[in-house]
Design a protein around this nucleic acid. Sequence first.
DNA 1: GTGAAAGCGCTAACAG
DNA 2: CTGTTAGCGCTTTCAC
Lengths: 351, 351
Amino acid sequence: MTVTIKDVAKVAKVAPSTVSRVISNSPRISERTKEKVREAMKELGYHPNFNARSLANQSTKTIGIIMPNSANKTFQNPFFPEVIRGISTKAHQLEYGLYLSTGQSDEEIIEEVQHMVQGKRVDGIILLYSKVNDKVLKYLHEQDFPFTLIGRPYDESLFNITYVNNDNFKAAKTVTEYLLLLGHKQIAFVGGNLDNVVTIDHMQGYNQALRNAGIEPRDEYIVFHEELQEGGQEAVIDLMSLTERPTALIVADDIMTFGVMRMLSEMEVRVPEDISIISFNNVMISELSAPPMTTVDINIYSLGYEAANLLIDKILHPSVEPKKMIVPHKMIKRETCRRLVEKGGAKRESM
Amino acid sequence: MTVTIKDVAKVAKVAPSTVSRVISNSPRISERTKEKVREAMKELGYHPNFNARSLANQSTKTIGIIMPNSANKTFQNPFFPEVIRGISTKAHQLEYGLYLSTGQSDEEIIEEVQHMVQGKRVDGIILLYSKVNDKVLKYLHEQDFPFTLIGRPYDESLFNITYVNNDNFKAAKTVTEYLLLLGHKQIAFVGGNLDNVVTIDHMQGYNQALRNAGIEPRDEYIVFHEELQEGGQEAVIDLMSLTERPTALIVADDIMTFGVMRMLSEMEVRVPEDISIISFNNVMISELSAPPMTTVDINIYSLGYEAANLLIDKILHPSVEPKKMIVPHKMIKRETCRRLVEKGGAKRESM
DNA sequence: GTGAAAGCGCTAACAG
DNA sequence: CTGTTAGCGCTTTCAC
């Protein structure tokens, strides 16, 4: 009942192999028979069977996407739809399909990845997160399976892989310098999970900027929290309980910033009058906070798009050297940062 | 170089078919040979080839997920990661994989769906959106291909399909009644795209509640906007330009509400003092608005989970009748609604 | 330019 | 309980 290549062959009065050649548009087939075959295909409503092709070809034309484990709240970050949109665009252009991981825990995920690669379910993999000592990364590298990482490898032994990242160190440094320029000296850093490489890079950029300005980073001003919203709220409590409250905050993620701002407003600390905030990512909703947040646009869409691009390249040319790519970031000034008002409180200049 | 069933067979000194039986854990194989075979598999590092299985089985153990076209901003709604998390959980339990659509336009999507089903790339499909006159829906139904819809069919001829939905009519009605109870009479409705069935249901619930209260719905109080954030903002401008401004707003979607609140605060209209707002979905961030929004929790995760559940059921038992399922919703009262203050402005009671 | 036939890796019907 | 064999639907040498 399913119409196969053979049926088409019969109707077109040619051999199955000829039909196959027409499908792949082989130049060694005459236009006349091509026409004949194509007609037969239309007539019968023929569609190539994907699994048969994959089996014969040893290629699936599909990309595996590994998300962080879905139990984690980060999963709901609008970051992901946006990277996927980027990946999706490139994939679609080159007629690749997307296969999604479903694991809820790290063990489930590594297992799944193994199934994907050993079972030849995908031609390559994109890792949507990068954390310290990641088993998945290590496994993929050992297997020499085509993959790209969004983020950067942490382990030295894994430096030589294909990845696309932002210059997160630089971004954090710039952002810190900006706050410094606005007169802030008590700048706190609210990071995400310390296992994420991006958190480490942010922190180092922050530290560097402070040191360059002759300010020694203070431990009490550096806090990390796993969960996005709750984390943001807890961080605020910790920070605002200090005798010397920070006058500015650098927050790891826009969603976390929502939590931070929420908590601050509950405590009746005004943004930016009492405290300045700057964060990272610039997801869709970040312009909708009250007040709209100043943040670093990391070009999420491009991260996805380029990751797909590099991956497909790797799939097609397995032997070429791994490529690294840095997607530019850009600070988006909105309304959560302001020049620090002097003790006396004379001028109030907003930036 | 890839290790196949034959290699295992050789090492274990059995026939390939026996190995196959061990894989599917057939009860007709003695424990002894099972052990022997399993050992050989470990030893060789054997992993079943997915495409070969799919081909022989006529089953892929994967579910296709059709998102709205990714060009659309709704794509970035945190709604999607959350439904997918639900789908993912069920799928993982039953060892199904997830295959994602990548189309950027409606044409691309319908094409993709056809490839998926005709090419036998997936065993079933979940539609993540439901809109009026949807070609995809129609096609799937014509083909009698297993699928479930998240939302409900609009076209009568398609009533008899499997779907999971909320009672959106009821939810909108309740919400309207709630505002009515708070003394509001000038209640506006800010809907999403009128092509979405959910918008229609919301509107009808709203209309019904008003009529029941003896209030004739006014055209000026009903606006629709496609885009989430911008839409929210435009809607506010339209509504606030009326001579008789509404005192309460029912907004289609939490993200849109962020846009609405942003615009309102720019216009220095205070929420909830000057205007009450209630919206739908209760996505993760909705509790982080300032003030935190009152909204209807539609249980997004369950929508996904149940959709996967019904779909897999359908895949396994194709002949059983289509099932419909209504996921309960629940109003989450937070801080954007308040009793209408009488003209004189005596009491101020918050709810 | 086109056909015949082997094979991708696995499953399942039929024997025994 | 286990082996033999014939496919699943397509690609790809190797002939002609």
